[in-house]
Structures are given as C-alpha cells and as structure tokens.
Amino acid sequence: MPPGLKDVAARAGVSIKTVSNVVNGYVHVAPETRARVQEAIDALGYVPNPAARRLRGGLSGVIALAVPDLRSPYFAELAGHVVAAAAPRGWTVLIDQTDGRGDRELDLVAGLHRHAIDGIILSPVATPAAELTSRHGVPSVLLGERNSRGPVDHVAIDSVAAAADATRHLLGLGRRRIAVIGAPDRPTAVTRQHRLAGYRTALADAGIAARAGFAVPVGGLHRADGAEAMARLLDTGARPDAVFCCTDLLALGAIRTLLERDIDVPGDVAVIGFDNIDAARYSMPTLSTIDPHNERIAQIAVDLLGERLGERPATAPPPREIRVEHRVIARESTLGRPPRRR
C-alpha cells in the first residue's frame, strides 16, 4: 500500500491533522514543523489523494494539459484551443511539456497530480497510457495515436486513414514515385508508425510497390529535420515526383531543400504535409496538408473531462474512444499556383 497521512505523521512525530495542514498549504504551521513534515513526505514518497481532496473541498476549477513539445505549432495551437474550450466553464489550464521522454512524462504526471487540479489532458509519446493513468486518481483524457485501447477516454484522428488519404491525393495527381519523410526512428514513435502504414496502404491499393530508400526516418519533427531528410534522400540519387511528410514542419523544411536545389514545387516534386498549422497557409508555395480538426479535438477532450468531473464513479461510463474526422486541404504545393487574373 502507498504511504498515507498516518505514515507521514508517525515519521514526522506530529498529528495527522498537522500533516493535512502542510499538504493543503495552510499558513499557520511552524516553519520547523513544516520542514519536518516535508522531509517525511519526501522520504516516504507520499502522494496526496486528489480524489479525497475533491470530496472534502469540491473542485478547484484548474485542469492541466501535458504535450510533447510547445515549440511545435501543432501543439501550441492545440493548447490555445484547449484554453478556449475550457474558458466557458471557468477553468484555468496549466500547460507543460514532456519533451516526448518517458521519464519526463511520468515525472510530470506525478508532479501535476500533487497539485489541486481537477483533471488532466495528456498527449503521451513514450509511456503506455495504462502506466501513466494508473499512478493518480485524477480524471484524464488522452490525445494522439495509440496502438491499443487504454483505461481512460481517448480522442484522436485515424492517422492511418489520414496518411492514406494524403498519399492518394498525390496519386490522384498522377504521381507515382512517392517518398515519405518522417518514418519512425524508434519503437515509441507510434504516430509516425501509423502514418507510414497509411502511406504504404495507399501505394499497395494503387498497385505500386514501395521503393527502397523512399521512406526517410527523422530524429525530430521540425523544419531542420525535414530539410536534412530531403537532402539525404536527394543525395542518394533518388528522384521522387512527390513527397508525403508526416508533419507540416517537416514538409516546410523539405520544400526549402528542394527549392535550394532548383527543384520546382510542385512541377518536379509535389509535397503534402500533415497538421494544417497556420504557417501552411502562408508558406511559398502554400502547403497542401491534412487537417486534423485540432479545435474539435480540444473541445471534445474538454467536454469528456467535464463529464467525468460531473459524474459519480459508480455511474461513469467505460472509457470512450472518439475518432475525429480529418480532411485533405489541397494547396499550391501539390496543385500549383492558380493563373493570375489580368
């Protein structure tokens, strides 16, 4: 059994009430007593029970959002949508990033649930959902692609189907030598595994064999990674006539390399990305992409969390899997520029 208030009180030589006062941040505790209790909490690894705290004091009106990388426009825009969806409920959103590392995901969740938050929206990368959510009693909603159902509500698009649709868009334009930038470089890159699978499915359905060397792995998902991956592909002597990139940032980097080498986009190589970030509408050329409906994902996640917070455990439904529809947005990077009007 995990340590409780009684264990901390015994180690610190104080009453259970004093430990409760320290845990709940009451100011009328002597500094030396507070320090002794905190030492006992740290030594025992005591974690306050947030469910019990909510029963005693009601909801705090604060939720948390944990995402892999706030430098990514996709996650920055997602965070903005979550804040906007939470505002009508009067909720404050605490936002932090995990860097996509398993240890960081576990540490962050452990740290978040010590605070008086009502629920967590998570976008895990490296840690199984069951391991994350089993460590705290806070209602949670998971975002992003996963390989199996988990113990809590989950909202995501079908990345396999979306990647297949992106590849079919290129096929529909008569492209046949289609490469993919963003192939997974590690087993935990589940999202990229799904998008690679979708790419391969579309090629197979069209009777086109996947070419050796046309699936280019990346170590990151930013513009520099896309530019470097495109350069590596071209340096092998490969000459694709189209590229599906697993994120918009990878696509923007890939286009930069193509243009630097005097390869016309989309005349010589058509490029499509994934995420429909705001920058995709203003790049030169504008970027064709998959729109995952980020705003809808955020709204559904907040709504699911709100339902959990308003339900009693005995009547709560089982974990729900929500699939959000996607769409292909065709722009200049695959269609070319429209003719100028005189």
Results as ranks from 00 to 15, higher is better:
I117N: 00
I117C: 00
D118N: 09
G119D: 06
L122W: 00
L122G: 05
L122I: 06
S123W: 07
S123Q: 15
S123E: 15
V125K: 08
A126T: 09
A126H: 02
T127W: 05
T127G: 08
P128Q: 04
P128G: 05
E131W: 11
E131D: 13
L132A: 03
L132C: 07
L132T: 04
L132R: 04
T133C: 15
S134R: 11
R135I: 07
H136I: 12
H136P: 06
H136K: 02
G137R: 08
V138Y: 10
P139S: 08
P139L: 05
S140F: 05
S140W: 12
L142Q: 03
L142G: 07
L143N: 02
L143H: 05
E145G: 04
E145V: 11
E145W: 15
R146A: 12
N147R: 15
S148C: 14
S148A: 15
R149Q: 10
R149Y: 11
R149S: 15
G150A: 01
P151I: 00
V152C: 12
D153M: 12
D153V: 09
D153C: 12
D153S: 03
D153P: 06
H154V: 01
H154D: 02
V155K: 00
A156T: 15
A156H: 11
A156I: 14
I157R: 07
I157C: 09
I157W: 01
I157Q: 00
S159Q: 15
S159M: 04
S159L: 06
S159H: 15
V160Q: 10
V160H: 06
V160D: 11
V160K: 08
A161Y: 09
